[in-house]
Nucleic acid binder design. Structure first.
Length: 86
DNA sequence: CGTATGACGTGCA
DNA sequence: GTGCACGCCATAC
């Protein structure tokens, strides 16, 4: 891949441990501030092991979704040091 | 090439 | 605060 998806993966990989970023922010850094839709779609169809996609959440502070299950996503985030209190 | 889909976001009732 | 509808972009079929 050498398109928007590649950029998205790069941005997600840049997310520091213990931190989370919203789909919109990722899309914005990916040079496509209006493609947050595609961001989740790409990550979903490209569940790359090298990409901490579980650190990408919704803008409303909600975990959002996950290919393996939202609860699994939250579980991973907890292990990373990110706690979803709400 | 065109249609449908989806890990969303925002606005309005 | 909750629910519904519309809009948006890239990828898959």
């Amino acid at each position: 891949m050498k398109s928007f998806s590649r950029n998205v993966f790069l941005v997600v990989k840049k997310i520091p441990l213990g931190k989370t970023m919203t789909y919109k922010q990722v899309a914005e850094k990916a040079s496509r501030p209006r493609a947050w839709r595609a961001v989740g779609n790409i990550l979903n169809k490209n569940d790359d092991q090298k990409i901490p996609c579980h650190r990408v959440i919704c803008s409303n502070k909600a975990a959002g979704g996950y290919r393996l299950g939202t609860k699994e996503k939250i579980r991973i985030l907890r292990k990373e040091g990110v706690v979803f209190e709400k």
